[in-house]
Design a protein around this nucleic acid. Structure first.
Lengths: 171, 171
DNA sequence: TATTGTTATACTCTATAACTATA
DNA sequence: TATAGTTATAGAGTATAACAATA
């Protein structure tokens, strides 16, 4: 009973009217109160939906996490990149990226080449297999986005991305 | 040298032209490729910004995490709520919520009252101190959002929240 | 038998600091 | 001396399954 004090029926000073009207809004939806105008809250809520979509369309089928997917897409679109640039683009810490690259390298999706220009630096290169998976998952993006069109018109989808770009400071 | 094989200079088949033009786009910004139209990616990028704002305005000064803040706001706006409803509203797992409530209870911000209607259930109630912090941090929301107006007009801010609401399925 | 909430456990993610090698 | 990347370690966050109390 280490935590037996968690609930006490003699609770506190004001017993907050514990009647059949036990809690307000039993079934009704909650008021967001001050959160109503907080962008970050709404971003977090929307992220739950897009994350579930990602898992279903890409994450589960191809065994990729979000960052791994983003990384493959960046390598596909830009060719070899240094860890340095990946860290900036994906907002990762250096040790975190090292672990990520280890996993992808073990799976044979990328390899590390040492730069001949500056031998401290590396080029992260998609392997043939990595290229195949990158292209396959790139094609899964369109059907995934199409599912959002139940909730959003095509114009709203585009508008949303543009506005989010402004927030992210990507001008 | 457990991982000495991480980089090999004899890398792979095609040595990917390792010249002074070592990597493309050395300083230029990266192409997003297929990510360009993926809403989830842009949400994640924007979340980095709003999270930093939250940390600076609310998280650090008041020692609150995002979920903790959201929870206080929901309790402030709706009065006592059951763990069940908080789980649904905040997209948490039950064990996760238990730990969260433990922390807030230890800090004296909330208390657990047992429901008289259904004694399995609880009411989570803001303490006097919890109410004070909730009101103080509620007031910090406006200045936080104001910082976004460098990047977004007021109309765009409102539009963005509306569109994110559609994505989250909050109709 | 189903539901509310808790415990125990493990796994992922992230952050920090110390280290190696190149420059 | 500074930079690129790695190692080691610990801390948060989250998920799963087993459990207790109540319905």
């Amino acid at each position: 009973m280490a935590r037996a004090d968690r609930t006490s029926d003699l609770a506190g000073a004001e017993p907050t009217a514990d009647l059949p009207t036990d809690r307000p809004n039993e079934a009704a939806s909650l008021s967001l109160g001050p959160l109503t105008d907080v962008l970050g809250y709404h971003i977090a809520q929307a992220a739950v939906v897009t994350y579930a979509l990602f898992e279903r369309h890409i994450g589960q089928p191809h065994g990729l996490r979000k960052v791994e997917y983003s990384m493959l897409m960046l390598l596909l679109a830009n060719g070899p990149l240094s860890p340095k640039r990946l860290i900036q683009a994906l907002a990762l810490s250096a040790p975190n990226l090292t672990l990520l690259l280890d996993r992808l390298q073990e799976r044979g999706l990328i390899r590390r080449e040492r730069s001949q220009v500056d031998r401290r630096s590396q080029n992260i290169v998609l392997t043939a297999e990595g290229g195949r998976i990158a292209r396959a998952t790139a094609e899964a993006a369109a059907p995934m986005e199409r599912e959002l069109l139940d909730r959003l018109s095509r114009a709203e989808h585009a508008m949303l991305i543009e506005l989010l770009g402004k927030v992210a400071g990507r001008l």
